[in-house]
Amino acid sequence: MATYTAARREAKQGYVMIAPTLIYALVLLAAPLLTILAFSFFKDGYLTVIREVTLANYIAVWTDPIFRAILLRSLCVAVMVTALTVGTAYPIAYFLSFGVSPGKKSFWLFLITIPFWTSYLVRVFLWKVIMGYNGVINSGFEMLGLMGDGRLFEDPFRMLSTMPAIAVTLAHCYAPFAILPIFVALEKIDRSLHEAGRDLGESRWTTFLRVTLPLSMPGVVAAVLVVFIPVIGDYVTPELIGGGKLPMVANMIQAQMLPLDNKPMGSAIAVSAMVTVTVIALIFVGLVRIFVKGAK
């Protein structure tokens, strides 16, 4: 009996401890999500939302070729950015884990987080400056005398408003998110496992393929998800770098929500995008579990 009340008291204390976070999560995460979900089943009236349950929004969304094109573009950008980010993050994380002496690791980690010191918006805008028509790259070529009539390049490059420009910008912004989980996964690998691989007849490269890579897969999976999911919903980069010419899902939602004032339609697009991302993420994790040993 005594232990029972003690356990109850402990449980109560536990609830008190998590209460601030719980309230925060309920008010700022669950409530808005549920609102969006509810809105997506309502009807749109002029300047109001008519509270009548209907599937019309979803039917409209999924039969709309523009939505499908934009969702596909968002997915393409997200896949490109994820591949680029994780592909470049892995060597950096590997170097950090294996090439940097233990005493200097925190300094290197600090260097990697430096981009976070400026706001996301400013970082995106910097790429605009770099890739613009009169930007750093084009004027650089001009200064070197490589650009102009009869030179190596006739005209300045048009880099903004292209998919690769969006991909490069996002890859740069999300790089630390990809580096850190891979770094942590690599750090956790017992160093004697590499020696065991060498000892059992494998070269450095095959040891990497058979030991290091599979054991670091949890970090790679985390990196892929951490980059892929937010990139699909990115709003700022397509707006600034894409110049509004290459809208992604977030831009479409914004257009429905604010300028067109069709909140139920905007909500339905948002929920559709969320469901798509969830399904893709689950398929990805499932495939990794099947094909890569060691990724748990």
């Binding site: 020696e195 000892d199 007849g201 054991l215 040993k293």
Partner: peptide
Amino acid sequence: PPNKRSTNMVFQSYAIFPHL
């Protein structure tokens, strides 16, 4: 290099591959 030597080692930590 170690992979070309006709020696094999039992490591102090055993270094058993945990993913296999």
